[in-house]
Simulated assay, not measured.
Amino acid sequence: MDAPDREKLVDELYLVHCDIFDGVSKEDFASYVVYSKANETRILIHKNAQGQSVGYCAIHFFEQNLEGRQSTVIRMEAGLMRAYRGKNRNAPFVCRQVLAYRLTRPGRRVYYLGALVHPSSYMLLDKYATRVWPSAQQSSELDYGGVIGQLARLFGLKPVDPDKPGVVHVGWQTRDNEGDRKQWQASANSAAQFYIHRNPGYTKGHGLLTLVPVTLGCMAHATGRMVLNRLSRLFAPHPHGHRG
């Protein structure tokens, strides 16, 4: 894309972003999403029936040297207007992009690094990934602590509190209302409760640094979960009876 088209894209996506998030300037949004310094960037744009943009998912591949080995760090920004949520619309796009990258670089370590600013994002990772750091299931965080410190420095992520490793200043605040917050506090989902316990300041724009090793096994697991979810929706009982 040439410069004018990129600026049009920034304007278009920032309007969507401001409907979903608060706390980020247009300049910062552009540098994160459209003008990322990643080696590769791909952006999915969701449009409604009228052709208006209602969501986006940007995925970035940063090639880094981590602990003396050539590695890739995947970072993402995504948002979808409230009226269009509920069908996990980004997962197929993300899986295709990550799998294609993974298959063309055998032997390279690949991680996903998220500075997650909402429990729903952590829940998705917990659902689709085979290993997530930090998590209630990963009792030992030695690997997490070693890699996350280096990644935080590489990406300039500043901790909120030195005594709480992995919680950083992000600034992006999801536009939840008081009812939404109370629902999340009362959620029976163990992943949501773990996230809130580790990052109670997410409503202030604090992010929980979350690391996922992206292996072929992880990709196969995520793809299998997606297929099962789609089948369960397809064969779920129709609220108005059977369809002929």
Rank of each mutant, 00 (worst) to 15 (best):
G55K: 04
V34A: 06
A49W: 08
R89D: 09
R75A: 09
Q52V: 12
L99I: 14
K26M: 10
L103C: 07
D28R: 08
V24K: 00
I20S: 06
Y84C: 14
N65H: 11
A78P: 01
R42K: 11
F29A: 01
N48M: 05
L66N: 10
A58I: 02
D28Y: 10
K87P: 06
N90K: 05
G23T: 04
K37G: 13
G23S: 04
A38S: 14
C95T: 13
V94Y: 02
K87H: 12
Y56S: 04
A49Q: 12
V94E: 01
A91Q: 15
N65D: 14
R69N: 10
Q70I: 09
G107N: 03
G107C: 06
V24I: 15
C57K: 02
E63H: 14
N48V: 05
R102V: 03
R69M: 10
V24F: 05
I45C: 04
M81D: 06
V24T: 04
A58Q: 06
G23Y: 01
Q97M: 12
H60K: 11
L103R: 12
I43L: 07
R69D: 05
R82H: 11
S53V: 02
R96F: 07
R96T: 11
I43G: 00
G51S: 07
C95Y: 13
Q50G: 15
N48C: 05
Q50L: 13
P106E: 14
I45P: 01
L80R: 03
G51P: 08
L44H: 06
R96P: 01
R75P: 11
P92I: 07
E40C: 10
